[in-house]
Amino acid sequence: MLTDAHHRIIDYVRLSVTDRCNLRCTYCMPENMRFVKSDALLTDAEIISLLQTLASAGISKVRITGGEPFMRPGLINLLSAIKAIPGITQLAITTNGVLTRDYIPALQQLGITDINLSLDTLQPARFLQITRRNQFDAVMQTLHSLLAHQMKVKINVVVMEDVNTDELVHFTSLTRDHALSVRFIEEMPFNGQGHTFSGIAWNYRTILDAIRETYPLHKLPDPPHATALLYSIPGHQGNIGVIPAYSRTFCGTCNRLRISATGSIKTCLYGADTINVKDLLRSGAPLLPALQQVLHHRAANGFEAEKQHPRIPESMSVIGG
């Protein structure tokens, strides 16, 4: 088993399969984003080899991220190959939903039912303002299709002051008639703009207080390693959660690694890149000893990691979500 410097077992990998995206969300990437060339990305064969090695060391859950994963050619074939790796028991996807609808039957056939849908507004005009693309209808069609196919849907909502805080109750209302989860996420500094991030006014406490003005919230037990604080509402089929992504209250139980589309490893979202697994794979160097070495120097939490790497100009699409 892979373990870090604080005796935490690492069994979860978030793997970006592309840095490309068909949206330009203001909190995620600049309009003039420069994407890497295709030969700089991990190939399908390298991804499979990498995950086979990681599975042999106890990695059992993989979440596919981007950029937008469905912009990678041949994604369904790659997902099928990942599903076949012994030891990988959970395979999930985070998507913006623009291209996803046509792939839902194939995902269901593969047994991939855990889908996180990034959606920060329920208003078409505001969607255009946030994403700088006119794709609201496509995303909503994906959401309705996911629900019709009885997929396990989580809607990820980044809460932004003076942008969408007036929609917290509207998003929460979706859980009344649908067995989905709405996750409200604190805004983070990874917008690719390169400017200083001064913090947030809408933290997880503020978000919960605003929702409580309309709905009674009952705390649910948090699963092991959970990043979200979960709540139910009487009479609602679904639930809500708040993710203290900037407050970082969940760091003590972190069990994950992040791997970028080019193979860079982050042992913490707020930390620097460590080793590059693509380079190790292409050189034939042993992977697990190098990975265990960087884990032995892993920061205890996001605040410590940020002190070690104080300025983070990356786009979230490059980090991998």
Rank of each mutant, 00 (worst) to 15 (best):
M1L: 11
A5K: 11
H7T: 06
D11L: 02
D19K: 00
R20H: 11
L23N: 13
R24K: 13
T26H: 15
R34G: 01
A40Y: 11
L41T: 06
T43H: 02
A45T: 13
I47W: 08
I47E: 06
L50C: 13
L50S: 02
A55K: 02
V62H: 07
R63N: 07
I64P: 04
T65P: 04
G66M: 02
G66Q: 02
G67C: 05
E68V: 09
M71F: 07
M71H: 00
R72C: 03
L75W: 06
I76N: 02
S80K: 10
A84V: 07
I85R: 13
P86I: 05
G87F: 03
G87S: 01
Q90C: 09
Q90F: 01
I93S: 06
R101I: 11
D102Y: 08
P105M: 04
Q108K: 14
Q109G: 09
I112S: 11
T113V: 15
D114I: 10
I115H: 04
I115P: 03
L117R: 02
L117I: 08
T121Q: 05
A125P: 08
A125I: 08
F127Y: 12
Q129H: 02
I130S: 07
R132E: 01
Q135M: 14
Q135E: 15
D137K: 14
L143E: 07
L146R: 08
A148D: 15
H149N: 12
Q150C: 12
V153P: 03
K154T: 02
V158G: 06
V158A: 07
M160D: 00
M160T: 03
E167A: 05
F171W: 04
T175F: 01
A179W: 14
A179H: 13
L180K: 11
R183F: 03
E187D: 13
F190P: 06
F190L: 08
N191A: 10
G192N: 04
F197M: 10
S198C: 12
S198G: 12
G199E: 12
I200D: 00
I200F: 02
A201I: 03
W202D: 00
W202Y: 09
I207A: 05
A210V: 03
T214I: 03
T214C: 08
L220E: 14
P221M: 03
P221F: 05
D222Y: 01
D222T: 13
A226R: 10
L229V: 14
Y231F: 13
S232G: 11
G238H: 05
G241T: 06
V242Y: 10
V242H: 02
P244M: 05
T249C: 09
T253W: 07
C254D: 08
C254I: 09
N255F: 01
S260C: 08
S264R: 11
K266M: 12
C268F: 07
C268M: 09
L269W: 11
Y270P: 03
D273W: 09
V277L: 14
R282K: 15
S283H: 14
G284K: 04
G284E: 05
L287Q: 05
P289H: 09
L291H: 05
A300R: 06
N301I: 01
G302L: 09
H309A: 13
R311S: 14
R311D: 13
R311V: 14
I312G: 12
S315K: 07
S317L: 14
V318F: 15
G320Q: 11
G321L: 00
G321F: 02
